[in-house]
């Protein structure tokens, strides 16, 4: 087995880590880089709990090999809050009680961030379609959709 050195821009910083060829990006983030905000849900691409932004597009980190991200840019949930505190999306999720057990929340927030980066004023339909790849098994979706729409109307992308 050949251990690989992977260099990537992670939440704005250049990072080099070692990984095995079979390791997923999710495993590397959690077990190598100790960024445990990204959650493991289904591990087969259905639930979106492991969402990260890879070169500006939303992906499931459980389906990406860590070796694939060499030379690429990644944003995880740890990179969403700014130096002055929570991102407006995070505040809006709290204010709308858009979470219950919380395991899906990082994925939802990362997915919502990717949406607002691309479409700062989405309609409710656009939010629902965008988040179709994220599952929440306890709260349901209405409060989550409301939180995203409120964050958008508050100008979340300016933060």
């Amino acid at each position: 087995m050949s251990t690989l050195a992977v260099t990537t821009t992670l939440n704005g910083e250049t990072v080099t880590f070692l990984c095995e060829p079979h390791e997923t990006l999710l495993t590397a983030l959690r077990d190598r880089l100790m960024l445990t905000g990204t959650k493991e849900g289904c591990s087969n691409g259905n639930c979106g709990a492991c969402n990260v932004i890879l070169d500006g597009t939303l992906v499931n980190s459980c389906l990406v090999l860590a070796a694939e991200v060499d030379g690429h840019q990644i944003t995880t949930i740890e990179g969403i809050a700014g130096p002055n505190g929570l991102h407006p999306l995070q505040t809006s999720f709290l204010e709308n009680a858009a979470l219950q057990c919380g395991i899906c929340t990082p994925g939802f927030i990362v997915a919502s961030k990717a949406l607002l980066d691309k479409n700062p004023q989405p309609t409710e339909r656009e939010v629902r379609h965008w988040l179709a790849g994220n599952l929440c098994r306890c709260t349901g979706y209405d409060k989550i959709v409301r939180a995203v729409l409120e964050a958008a109307s508050a100008g979340a992308t300016k933060e």
Partner: peptide, 12 residues
């Protein structure tokens, strides 16, 4: 999903 049998990654 982890596939521990994979021992070699190539990007030609």
């Amino acid at each position: 999903m982890a596939n521990p049998a994979i021992q070699d990654y190539q990007r030609p």
